[in-house]
Write a protein that binds this DNA or RNA. Structure first.
Length: 568
DNA sequence: TTCCGACAGTGGGGTCGCAAT
DNA sequence: ATTGCGACCCCACTATCGGAA
């Protein structure tokens, strides 16, 4: 195996750095001793805008938003965060509302604009006085989003530099957080929705529902603040407009899931890309989990939707790729295919996709979200032939039912699929929710691996060694890195491992601490994926720490051979 | 009073497309 | 041609707040 020849324990240097750089890296970073804290940004000029957040002639400044974001980050009480943000919403000019809502829920109205940490990491010296208006900033981002073609990167950096140069230190921090999608103020969409409800005098539940149906807070906010609570009724499920998909929680076993749900349906869980398919007459649109439209990339899905008997419907399902043997292809192949947009015909010929459906959100143009699972499934069965639906069994609330569910999981795994999802028979479609009415069950693998290095954490993990580099034993006693993980650690485990790894440290570049390979950790993971980054040619999927094993010696860790033998 | 649902945060690997080198 | 970066796909898990029980 060629990748083996690179010899080192870690990522193949030729494959590029596995780390992500952040602005903090260049400051007095977490590795340099004292925990990193934002510099104090005094009030003063900010208050030119007044406590109500705007100057007399209705031009809203950015400064009060940045200040409120800071205050929101400072308080831990959710109710206080909501009150702070509601006040800004209430006082915003109607034209500014969509922008203000987006900024205070940590996003840009333009979405992603091609600017990441790399372009933000060396900001110019901040301005002394706050002068930027919300409208100017929004115009600047609109201009940034439009930049493309040769020279785009330099042009973007120049524009970002110009904008940040006019911002105070606090405003710079706020803007970079919004652009990078990491405001870290402990308030995103859910808090914005509550605040919006207060600002508009509407019921939070009604606002939340409208947001799920509209797919965005801003679209609801605009109309709600302009027209009042009556505007909420206009947000209904519409064929052609995507709604946020319902998500599942995890359960350790089918028996556990069945216990919690009572009688339930157990459906196979396919390892592909979630799709929401809308058909209105001949018009078909396909959306991803985050509501991006990918219709043009999935011609076979659109064709399948047109071939169905119904005329106006919305289906929820998964696209997967099946091999000649009928078994599912690895997720990576499906993701590559769905991600291909330049030459769809060639990509489709190489990896044909199949859509498999498990829910229906609208039938004959009428929304079904509030119907219980059983009735939605009946509608699904009317609309979609069995071979285009996920396999399932319905089990009752008892010993025999649980056994039947477990047997169905084993059979599903035997066919090469990822696991199952147990669904309560009375569960309504909770758009945008990770409801307890859907419980996914997947097999978990475990390994004892050795910590080779650890990275300093960010945010609430600042000052702790958080992200672990994991190695499996080679026959010659060295280690092959299989991936990293920061998951599964309690605060106590984090503190303990930071102390222990400091004792084992041999090198610290301010970002990564390399250690003597002596600490064994028990790792859970979902499976292996092909990797060009790591020397064994595979990486762990969804690795997380179960526990530290200081009782185990590194030479007792699992070997590369063991890991590869467990491969499907 | 205790329990539990919903959120936010902290990042993981892979793949594609585009611009820079 | 190769590399770097950003956008999106998939995602697990813990801490916390505040309402439900």
């Amino acid at each position: 195996m060629a990748a083996r020849a690179c010899g080192g324990y870690g990522p193949d240097p030729a494959a590029g750095p596995a780390r992500t750089r952040r602005p903090e890296d260049d400051g007095p970073g977490p590795g340099s001793g004292a925990p990193w804290r934002p510099a104090y940004d005094p009030p003063g000029p900010l208050h030119r805008a007044g406590a109500r957040g705007r100057v007399h002639h209705g031009v809203m400044l950015l400064a009060p938003l940045a200040r409120v974001s800071g205050e929101v980050a400072e308080t831990s009480a959710r109710s206080r965060k909501i009150a702070l943000i509601a006040e800004v919403f209430r006082d915003a000019e109607p034209e500014d509302v969509p922008v203000v809502i987006a900024y205070l829920s940590g996003r840009l109205p333009q979405g992603r604009i091609g600017v990441g940490w790399s372009a933000l990491k060396d900001p110019p010296p901040p301005a002394a006085e706050a002068s930027l208006t919300v409208r100017e900033v929004d115009a600047a981002f609109t201009a940034l989003a439009a930049v493309s073609g040769p020279g785009a990167q330099a042009q973007r950096r120049r524009l970002v530099g110009e904008l940040l140069g006019r911002a105070t230190e606090r405003e710079q921090r706020f803007l970079t957080g919004v652009v990078a999608g990491e405001v870290r103020q402990g308030a995103l969409d859910a808090v914005a929705v509550e605040a919006l409800a207060i600002a508009a005098g509407a019921q939070p539940a009604a606002v939340r529902r409208a947001v799920m149906l509209a797919g965005s807070v801003s679209r609801v906010a605009e109309r709600l603040l302009a027209e009042g609570p009556g505007a909420l009724a206009a947000f209904r499920l519409t064929v052609g407009s995507p709604v946020l998909p319902m998500l599942a929680q995890s359960a350790p076993s089918v028996a556990d899931a069945a216990q919690r749900l009572g009688g339930c349906a157990v459906e196979e869980k396919l390892d592909g890309i979630r799709v929401q398919v809308h058909r209105d007459g001949e018009a078909v649109r396909v959306f991803t989990r985050t509501l991006d439209e990918i219709t043009d990339r999935l011609p076979e899905v659109a064709a399948a939707a047109r071939a169905l008997a119904g005329d106006r419907f919305v289906l929820d399902g998964e696209v997967i790729a099946l091999g000649a043997d009928g078994r599912p292809r690895p997720f990576q192949e499906v993701a590559g295919r769905v991600g291909s947009r330049t030459d769809v015909a060639t990509a489709a010929a190489a990896v044909p996709l199949s859509a498999v459906f498990f829910d229906v959100l609208a039938e004959d143009g009428a929304g079904l979200l509030d119907l219980p699972y059983t009735r939605r499934h009946a509608a699904l069965a009317r609309l979609v032939p069995e071979e285009l639906r996920v396999r399932r069994v319905v089990v009752d609330d008892g010993e025999a039912g649980r056994a039947a569910g477990e047997a169905f999981l084993r059979e599903t795994l035997g066919r090469g699929h990822e696991g199952v999802v147990a669904k309560g028979l009375d569960t309504v479609y909770g758009a945008g929710r990770r409801g307890a009415g859907w419980l996914k069950v997947k097999p978990v693998h475990t390994l004892d691996l050795v910590v080779l290095a650890a990275e300093w954490g960010h945010g609430r993990r600042t000052g702790t060694l958080s992200n672990l580099h994991l190695g499996a034993l080679r026959p010659d006693g060295t280690f092959a890195m299989l991936g990293k993980t920061f998951k599964g650690l309690t605060d106590a485990m984090l503190a303990w491992q930071t102390e222990r790894l400091r004792e084992l440290a041999v090198d610290d570049d301010g970002f990564t601490v390399r250690v003597r390979p002596e600490l064994v950790v028990e790792i859970a993971y979902d499976g292996l994926q092909r990797s060009t980054r790591y020397p064994a040619g595979v990486a762990l999927r969804f690795a997380r720490v179960l526990r530290h094993r200081p009782d185990k010696r590194p030479q007792d860790a699992d070997t590369v051979e063991t890991v590869l033998a467990g491969r499907d």
